[in-house]
Amino acid sequence: MNKVPMTVAGEARLRKELEYLKGEARPKVIADIAEAREHGDLKENAEYHAAREQQGFIEGRIKEIESKLSAAQVIDVMKLPQTGKVIFGVTVELINLNNDETVTYQIVGEDEAEIKAGKISVTSPIARALIGKEEGDVVVVNTPGGEVEYEIAGVEHR
């Protein structure tokens, strides 16, 4: 099985969600199903069917998270040597040479990516172009709108 890179924060977030699903959501939906059963005829019992559907979602999500955690290779960027190179987990400040706008991204695992929070997937075109480069390098990224040139203004281990 291939290991999937994940940050320490990403692993903690998934473990917290798993704990919530197993410790709170699952017992609540089981209680909801039991209560709905007490109302009689299950064929026409909307509460029962809704609770069963919710149970299926919860169980599916538990299996998905457990699978992701078992395949995760957790990387603590703070323990890696600070070489100034762009690697998984670092935060990169980029200057768009086409319009002089500055953007900051952290390179994270696929499940952690959230562009609005400044987190991009290690498999994204921008991250793939940046990996291995150093502060001061210029990279060209192919985007749907054409090629964009970025200069790496800073690399931080956070």
Rank of each mutant, 00 (worst) to 15 (best):
I95E: 14
F57S: 14
G56L: 05
R15A: 12
Q106E: 14
E19I: 00
A34C: 04
V77D: 04
V77K: 07
L94M: 05
L21I: 08
V138D: 04
E17A: 08
I33E: 02
G23C: 02
T104S: 09
L130E: 01
N99S: 04
M78P: 00
E11L: 01
F88H: 08
E93V: 09
G136I: 02
R15I: 07
I126S: 02
Q106N: 11
I131N: 00
R26Y: 13
I115A: 15
E64L: 15
R37P: 00
K119P: 04
R15S: 09
P144Y: 07
E93T: 14
E110R: 15
Y105P: 00
T102N: 04
E93N: 13
Q55M: 11
A117K: 11
K43Y: 11
I115F: 13
E66L: 13
E11S: 05
G145W: 06
A117D: 09
F57M: 15
T143I: 01
S124R: 12
K119R: 15
P81F: 00
K28A: 06
T104N: 07
L21F: 01
R52T: 12
A72N: 03
G118S: 09
E59Q: 07
I126D: 00
E110V: 15
G145I: 06
G136M: 04
I30T: 08
K63D: 08
G109T: 10
D32G: 04
T83L: 03
G145E: 12
K16S: 14
F57Y: 14
I75E: 11
I58N: 02
K79W: 00
L80N: 03
L94S: 06
G132E: 03
D137N: 07
R52G: 04
H39G: 11
P81G: 02
A113E: 11
N96R: 04
S121C: 10
I115L: 14
V138N: 06
R52E: 14
E47G: 08
D76R: 07
K116T: 15
N99C: 11
V138F: 07
